[in-house]
């Protein structure tokens, strides 16, 4: 008689753990994505600027000229 340790219940448990793991990874990715969008306000370059730097002035109005 063969004793099998891998029962259907273990498979179900593994599936549940895998699902939960993937859900958590997706949640982390979602929060990261949302943070990027909020911080950069839709402009990817703005996120790279220091917080105290002034926003880029519109063309023709900025600088000392």
């Amino acid at each position: 008689m063969t004793i099998r340790t891998e029962h259907e219940i273990h498979q179900r448990r593994f599936g549940r753990n895998l699902g939960l793991g993937l859900t958590l990874v997706a949640f982390v990715a979602l929060v990261f994505g949302l943070t990027v969008v909020k911080v950069t306000n839709g402009d990817p370059m703005r996120g790279l600027m220091p917080a105290h730097a002034p926003a880029a002035a519109p063309e023709g109005q900025g600088g000392n000229g």
Binding site: I3, R4, H7, I9, R12, G15, R16, L18
Partner: peptide, 21 residues
């Protein structure tokens, strides 16, 4: 089916081990 399987089935039914779905 072994006893272990039989016991496992009983345990599975009693605890109502749920899947992710």
């Amino acid at each position: 089916m072994s006893d272990i399987h039989a016991n496992g089935d009983v345990i599975g039914a009693q605890t109502g081990e749920a899947g992710f779905g």
